[in-house]
Write a protein that binds this DNA or RNA. Structure first.
Length: 551
RNA sequence: GCCCCCGUAGCUCAGGCGGACAGAGCAGCGGUUUCCUAAACCGCGUGCCGGGUGUUCGAGUCACCCCGGGGGCACCA
């Protein structure tokens, strides 16, 4: 008993197919035609079934239309073009469906279809060697929105941040720390080649001296570096966590590669699992995994000839770790790691996971511009535009929304000056303003001491303007839209939908008064405004963007 | 040389598991406010959808090739 239109249409279509003696395809797809003269929904089943039915598509479509059952939601059904079945919704039914949207409230758009499935989504996972930068903000916006969207579809979602605090880079961080600490003590020391020369480490080094004291530097090298490294990782991680929280992103857990994967010997265990399946071999002094049997280009090294584990070996262990309480994994990674996708998938398939249980999304780079000029960023010299500077300058909502109006796999030019200078015309404000306007209508009502009607008893048949029906039909598409965003892992669909919805409301608001002398009409229009406001709020919530009452 | 991503309006990008006449925002020009927020509304668009071949009743969408841009091709992480 939902307002989900396509579910009802599919039931009707099934009934029609049965009555017509046609075998239904496994899945029925409804699309919203670009042109309204083609109806509110259309399906191409007739064309799909034509071959099996040994009839021309249009004839099949005629059969479907002929046997179409009477449904309150549907005014008429017709055959069009090469064999489309076009469905026109009944206006009165649509208007009445507003009641269901309002009753569902914040739950409108949710679905139970993912219930029982546990999804672990890992994102950002920047190295704990420096502050977060702009591309991390992009990944954070996308990952967080995906988590929210999947949750809305009933999935149990865990958001996870992996801290690569082991291996070479951890050592280089420790050495860089040591140089900075000794510099503070007056020694002439350079940050080592391949280290982290960013200024931020100076502050961390100051903290270290204050908390741990200079005497700790007299420890033997191994212990000294471990202490320095551990301290730096902790402080940098805390800073990353703080920025992400400001951005509105919370992780369910932060997993330390060093503590939770390496120390307990999980990589070795993973290798043994592969060995038990006879999927490893020794060659040239190293231990290899037969990745090429599972879709990778070539076999991959697990243990180097010097006896050290590769990052890949740890990564296999980490993915198994994630599968510990999840059925499905989603990794968001940067394009520089895409060479890893094939091998990690190969390893998971080799260990018995379904081929589609690991989904890897590549979040493409962000080219930062300022007034059309590229902002120079040099990791080597430690020059970045930081994520916190971005939030400061552009604002959290605008930054998130801008990232979410692009596909994750499309490289993005982000011109700070444009996004800030045009802030008033930014699409995010267009959508938020829609929400604020609707809030102000109810504020106005309150000031005039007029009651908010009980939606259950409002006469919605007063909503007959074409703009009103178009708006309502747009609202009715929302559940399918969110489901589609969840299925394809494309949060930007929600952002575009919201812009279209707002683009439907603003002109309507401009042309027609909601609150008028006609009390019954006022109540009906209030219901529509409330429903639009609710859906805007729900949609923005899925993106992690605020829905202000005032602007 | 091999692999991945991208190539749609001046700019930034959408185009919903192939569908019916290709869209939005921005930038530009002109107009709208005694009225629930003008961060709004109204009007103004001639795009070889990078090029080619193919699959299909139908291709911006799928396959292959080519061109252009970015990124990867480690016993680094």
């Amino acid at each position: 008993m939902g307002a989900n239109v396509t579910e009802q249409l599919s039931e009707g279509l099934h009934a029609a197919l049965r009555a017509a003696g046609l075998a239904p395809p496994e899945e029925l797809l409804w699309e919203v035609p670009r042109e309204s003269v083609h109806g509110d929904y259309a399906t191409n089943v007739a064309m799909q079934l034509a071959k099996a039915a040994r009839r021309p598509p249009r004839q099949v479509a005629e059969l479907i239309v002929k046997h179409w059952p009477s449904l309150p939601a549907v005014e008429r059904v017709e055959v069009a073009g090469p064999g489309f079945v076009n469905v026109f919704l009944a206006g009165a039914w649509c208007a009445d469906a507003l009641r269901q949207i309002l009753a569902a409230g914040a739950e409108y758009g949710q679905s139970p279809r993912g219930r029982g499935q546990r999804v672990r989504i890992e994102f950002v996972s920047a190295n704990p060697t420096g502050p977060l930068v702009i591309v991390n903000a992009r990944a954070a916006a996308i990952g967080d929105a995906l988590a929210r969207i999947l949750r809305s579809q009933g999935y149990t979602v865990f958001a996870e941040y992996y801290v690569n605090d082991a291996g070479n880079q951890a050592t280089m961080l420790a050495r860089s720390m040591e140089a900075r600490v000794r510099q503070l003590l007056g020694e002439a020391r350079d940050v080592p080649e391949g280290g982290y020369p960013g200024e931020y480490l100076v502050d961390v080094a100051k903290g270290y001296l204050a908390e741990e004291g200079a005497h700790s530097l007299s420890e033997p090298e191994a212990a000294r570096l471990e202490r320095l490294g551990r301290y730096a990782v902790r402080r940098i991680r805390e800073a990353q966590e703080r920025v992400l929280r400001e951005y509105g992103v919370e992780f369910d857990r932060w997993v330390s590669e060093n503590v939770e994967i390496r120390k307990p010997g999980l990589p070795e265990e993973a290798i043994e699992l592969l060995r038990a399946r006879d999927l490893v071999y020794e060659a040239e002094g190293a231990l290899w995994f037969r990745a090429s049997r599972f879709g990778d280009d070539e076999d991959r090294v697990l243990v180097k000839s010097d006896g050290e584990l590769t990052y890949f070996a740890a990564d296999i262990a980490y993915h198994l770790f994630k599968f510990g309480d999840a059925d499905r994994l989603i990794d968001l990674i940067g394009p520089d790691h895409h060479g890893y996708v094939a091998r990690i998938k190969a390893a998971m398939i080799a260990l018995g996971k379904p081929a589609d249980a690991v989904q890897v999304l590549i979040v493409q780079l962000v080219t930062l511009l300022r007034g059309g000029e590229p902002v120079r960023m040099s990791k080597r010299r430690g020059e970045f535009v930081l994520m916190e500077e971005l939030i400061e300058e552009v604002g959290r909502d605008a930054a998130r929304f801008t990232f979410l109006t692009r596909r994750h796999d499309s490289p993005l030019d982000f011109d700070i000056e444009v996004v800030t200078r045009q802030s008033a015309d930014n699409p995010v404000y267009y959508v938020q303003y829609c929400h604020a306007r609707i809030s102000s209508i109810f504020q106005h009502l309150k000031q005039r001491k007029l009651p908010v009607p009980d939606w259950r008893s409002v006469d919605l048949s007063r909503l007959t303007l074409p703009e009103e029906l178009a708006l309502i039909k747009r609202l009715l598409q929302f559940p399918d839209l969110v489901a589609g965003a969840a299925r394809t892992l494309e949060p930007h669909r929600v952002a575009y939908y919201l812009q279209e919805l707002a683009a439907g409301f603003h002109p309507y608001y401009n042309r027609h008064r909601v609150v008028s002398e006609d009390r019954a009409l006022t109540d009906a229009r209030l219901a529509l405004a409330a429903a639009v406001g609710q859906v805007v709020r729900n949609g923005l919530a899925l993106l992690g963007v605020s829905a202000p009452e005032k602007m």
